[in-house]
Amino acid sequence: MASIAANQSILAARAPHRLWVRCLHWLMAGAIITLGGTGTVILASHPRLYWGETGNDLTPALIELPISRNYRHGGFEPAIPFRTAPNGAVTAARTYDIFNQNGWGRSLHFLAAWIMVLAGTAYLFIGTMTGHLRRVIVPTPADLAPQTLLRDVAEHAALRIPAKVGPPYGPLQKIAYSGVVLLCLPLMVMTGLAMSPQIGAATGLMALFTGSQSARTIHFAGFAMIFLFILVHVVMVLLSGPRRQLAAMILGRAGQ
């Protein structure tokens, strides 16, 4: 990665992370952890995922997640058909007292979402205006050259992680950061809004994702990707000198 470092010698001479990067990093870290936690609480009240517009305990699920006592609870009175409805639509009264903490769960989720959206917008704005995204985050064509990529994959597979702080970043690192910042997080906002009855309809997002249940399933897939990213991100920090990495991201010190 010497060639990349040469291009960015000016950056390397500065503090490893700019002040605005550090502030927004921790603000978004707090918001994402809150969103993941409350999202899990919300999902636990109905741990079934579907595709299309509709899905409930009386229709087949795409995926059922064993994450709460609501998993396959089966607490329903016998189903009654609607004589005059198509598709053999039925109704059944639920008798089971489900786990549901969505009162605070949903409100905290949206509070964190507000912080995430505001901080994320600020990040994208400053990142674009200063050229930070282009210079530091988005992979260059050279990064994506098969040989460069394969060498970086091999280095990571062998757990040879350089004890380096701040940019310039390696090819896989750039792919991970830009994937989360430019793809996953915007997708989370869009699928989140698509689930709202009125916003989903007014913005066309519900149709874009082929229905609110599809949007909910993609929202969960996005969560899984971000969860995986955080896991790898933390492991990488641990493998590359956690004290120096934390000092750099909190205090902006390069450290020795």
Partner: peptide, 26 residues
């Protein structure tokens, strides 16, 4: 924010009869 950004009479989608589904009573 929703009141500011979405038109007052912003309609939700209405579906075709063929899309009627089963529904839980809770």
């Amino acid at each position: 924010a929703q009141r500011l950004l979405i038109p007052k009479a912003g309609l939700v989608r209405e579906y075709d009869r063929s899309q009627i589904s089963s529904i839980m009573a809770i």
